[in-house]
Simulated assay, not measured.
Amino acid sequence: MNHNLLTTKEAALFLGVSKAFLERDRWAGARIPFVKIGTRAVRYRADDLDGYINSQIRQSTSESGE
C-alpha cells in the first residue's frame, strides 16, 4: 500500500483539474477522498485518486454515474 501523500496542488495536477475544483469538492461533500492531518493540512493518497478516476468510467455521456 502506497501512503505517499500529495498536496492539493499535486493532486490537482495528477487529476488534470484546478486546485479550486478540489477545494470546492471538499466543501461540497468530498466525492474525492482526502486525508486531514492536524487542523489545516489536507492531503490526497494516489491510490484514492486512482480509485476516483476508476469510479468515473462511463460507457455513454448520458450515464448519470449514480
Rank of each mutant, 00 (worst) to 15 (best):
M1H: 11
M1L: 15
N2V: 14
N4K: 15
N4Y: 14
L5S: 14
L6W: 07
L6Q: 05
L6Y: 15
T7F: 09
T7E: 03
E10M: 08
E10V: 00
E10R: 07
E10K: 06
A11M: 04
A12F: 13
L13W: 12
L15M: 05
L15P: 02
L15F: 08
G16L: 04
G16S: 03
G16T: 09
S18H: 10
S18Y: 12
F21I: 08
F21Q: 07
F21T: 14
L22K: 03
L22V: 05
L22N: 01
E23W: 08
E23Q: 14
E23M: 09
E23N: 11
R24E: 09
D25G: 02
D25K: 03
R26T: 04
W27K: 12
A28D: 11
G29Q: 09
A30Y: 07
I32K: 00
I32M: 01
P33I: 15
P33E: 04
F34E: 00
K36D: 07
I37Y: 12
T39M: 12
T39R: 13
R40W: 13
R40S: 10
V42R: 01
V42Q: 03
R43Y: 05
Y44K: 00
R45S: 08
R45N: 09
R45T: 06
R45C: 04
A46W: 06
D48L: 00
D50Y: 11
D50E: 11
G51N: 01
Y52T: 03
Y52R: 00
I53T: 09
N54A: 12
R58G: 09
Q59C: 12
Q59A: 12
S60M: 11
S60G: 07
S60V: 04
S60P: 01
S60T: 06
T61V: 15
S62A: 14
E63T: 08
E63W: 03
S64G: 13
S64A: 14
G65R: 02
E66M: 08
